[in-house]
Amino acid sequence: MPSPTRKTKKTGTTFRAVAVTAAAAALTLALSGCTRLETTSPSTVRATDAQARFGTVDCRRARCIALTFDAGPSEHSARLLDILKEERVPATFFLMGRRHIDRYPELVRRMADEGHEVANHTWTHRRLTELEPDGIREELERTNAEIARLTGRRPTLMRPPQGRTDDTVHRISRELGLSEVLWSVTAKDYTTTDSDLITRRVLDRSSRDGIILLHDLYDGTVPAVPGVIAELRKRGYAFVTVPQLLAPGKAEPGAVYR
Rank of each mutant, 00 (worst) to 15 (best):
Y257T: 03
P105Q: 01
E38W: 00
P105C: 03
P223V: 05
A112V: 05
L213G: 01
T199M: 01
R103F: 00
R110K: 09
H116A: 07
C59G: 12
E141S: 15
P73S: 04
W123D: 14
L131C: 04
F69L: 05
D194I: 00
G12Y: 01
R36I: 06
I83L: 14
A22Q: 12
G177V: 05
P73H: 01
I83Y: 04
T221I: 01
L80K: 08
E141W: 10
V20F: 02
E114Q: 12
R61V: 13
L245T: 03
R88H: 14
E231F: 14
S206A: 15
I83D: 07
I136Y: 12
V118M: 11
H170P: 08
R171G: 11
L217A: 01
T192L: 01
Q244Y: 03
L213K: 02
V18N: 13
G177Y: 07
Y237H: 09
G254L: 06
D82N: 15
G55R: 14
G12E: 06
K9N: 12
R109Y: 09
V240W: 07
D209T: 05
G220H: 03
A30H: 09
D167W: 00
R233A: 14
P2L: 03
T191A: 05
Y190N: 09
F94H: 11
P160S: 01
G210C: 06
E252P: 15
E75S: 07
V57D: 15
T186R: 00
I65A: 10
K85T: 08
R63F: 05
A112I: 09
L29H: 11
G97W: 02
L197E: 12
L150M: 03
K10V: 03
I136R: 06
F54P: 14
R6K: 10
F15C: 08
D58G: 10
V20S: 10
A26G: 13
P105T: 02
I83R: 08
L214S: 00
Y218S: 02
V108R: 03
E141I: 15
I229R: 12
T5C: 02
R200Q: 13
T68H: 07
E146Y: 01
R16I: 11
T199L: 10
S173C: 13
L31E: 09
P243R: 02
A148W: 01
F239P: 11
A25K: 09
P226I: 06
R99A: 04
Y190T: 12
L182N: 14
A26P: 04
R159D: 03
H215K: 00
L178Y: 09
L67A: 05
T193S: 13
R153W: 03
E175Y: 02
R61D: 13
K85I: 02
R126E: 14
H125L: 03
A23R: 12
T56I: 06
M111F: 06
I212D: 02
D166P: 05
R235L: 13
L150A: 07
V256H: 06
T168G: 10
A17P: 07
H116G: 11
H76E: 05
V242K: 07
R208Y: 01
V20M: 13
A145H: 05
R53E: 15
